Simulated scan of single mutants.
Amino acid sequence: MSTLDGFQAQLRALPKVSLHDHLDGSLRPQTLIDLAAEVGHELPTADPEALQEIFRTNANSGDLVKYLEAFAHTTAVMQSAENLRRVAREYVEDLAADGVVYSEVRWAPEQHLAGGLTLDETVEAVQAGLNDGVEAVEANDGVIAVGQLISAMRQADHAEEIVELALRHRDAGVVGFDIAGPEAGFPPSRFAASFTRLAEQMLPATVHAGEADGLESVRGALVDGRAQRLGHGIRVAEDITLTSGPESRSKIGDGGEDLIEVELGPVATWVRDRQIHLETSPTSNLQTGAVSALTGKTEAELAHHPFDMLYQLGFNVGVNTDNRLVSGVTLTGELAALAEAFDYGLAELADFQINAIEASFLGYEEREVLAAHILEAWQ
């Protein structure tokens, strides 16, 4: 076993937290093949390893259209209660196998109605699968808890209906609300009334922002979306000005120069000072072009990701996978990649777990119990 493999094995055994993981982007390749055969949906291949490689290659192509091709396949097979339940159960089992002890799974029920299900029936089917998965993990002496984040698709304009759906199921597995889909042209201000309704009913929200669009998207998520967390959020770095040179000892940024002075604009200041959690997904942020949009580097690498800069400046950052099938990643692998890119040890990687659990939509007592469990294990 190589040193890297040994480090990943160590990380896999440690308790971790996942706050940004899409259900329809995280199917097992074999499950996708099985379900596609059942419903008569054509896939590029019926070989699970080859299918995974096609998705990974498309994700790494730099072409967002190719990246998104996978979702046409996954949602096509997730149109029945039985299939939703299976996908949700396996989702939990796969996370537990990777050492995740708490997850908030996001998905958009409005994308799963083609088979005749109602919105409520889709949520109930996913919750049944999540419950099945938790029971299976516990039967093997494991520990995991999972909450649903109900997403509304920005381009569909069904936010008011989806908010009411989330509220109806808040005591039956739903822990929060999200908006997903294209950022540009679909700002949170379009759904201001829906976010007000959530605030009135005190159901928390996270908002996809600062991934496919820039700083104004982040501002809109905070102001109009009343976001407690930012989905990705890395383009808040557009509001940070660095002056660098050889004089200082502190290294920060994309490979290189020593920091002399940092100036935070009003949005970045608000995000840092209020400790608004950033749900970063390092590999996905590279694949979707979010890092290139920040750096201007067409061939962006993980070392160009603003993650380390944000962490060193005191931003509240977490680590996520976004879409495990599509990107071909695990949470363990993402942590190991960050450790290699930025020379992190276990102490830093533990910080990201505590950041995430404290920013989760669990209740205070539950967060405290899980945080203590995580700290004890990582120390």
Rank of each mutant, 00 (worst) to 15 (best):
G231Q: 08
G231S: 11
G231C: 10
H232M: 10
H232Y: 10
H232E: 11
G233R: 01
G233C: 04
G233E: 02
I234N: 03
I234T: 07
R235P: 03
R235N: 06
V236T: 08
V236N: 01
V236G: 00
A237P: 02
E238G: 04
E238V: 02
D239Q: 04
D239S: 04
I240G: 00
T241V: 11
T241C: 02
L242W: 07
S244C: 14
S244H: 07
S244F: 06
G245V: 02
P246M: 10
E247G: 14
E247N: 13
S248I: 04
R249N: 13
R249C: 08
R249T: 13
R249Y: 14
S250L: 15
S250Y: 10
K251Q: 12
K251W: 11
K251T: 13
I252N: 10
G253A: 12
G253S: 13
D254S: 13
G255H: 11
G256K: 15
E257N: 11
E257A: 12
D258S: 13
D258H: 12
L259V: 09
I260P: 00
I260C: 09
I260F: 06
E261W: 06
E261F: 05
E261Y: 08
E261Q: 14
V262W: 07
E263I: 09
L264F: 11
L264Q: 07
G265R: 05
P266Y: 03
P266A: 07
P266K: 02
P266Q: 08
V267A: 03
V267S: 01
V267P: 01
A268L: 02
T269K: 09
T269A: 05
T269P: 00
W270T: 11
W270H: 14
W270M: 10
V271L: 01
R272Q: 06
R272D: 01
R272C: 00
R274F: 06
R274T: 12
Q275F: 03
Q275L: 06
Q275V: 03
I276H: 01
I276R: 00
I276K: 01
I276M: 01
L278W: 01
L278Q: 02
S281L: 12
P282Q: 12
T283F: 04
S284A: 15
L286R: 07
L286Y: 08
T288W: 08
A290Q: 07
V291I: 13
V291Y: 04
S292V: 08
S292K: 13
T295Q: 06
T295F: 05
T295N: 05
G296K: 05
G296P: 04
G296N: 09
K297A: 12
K297I: 14
T298D: 14
E299S: 11
E299Y: 10
E299G: 03
A300K: 07
A300Y: 09
A300R: 07
E301L: 12
L302W: 08
L302T: 10
L302H: 08
A303H: 12
A303G: 11
A303T: 15
A303F: 07
A303M: 10
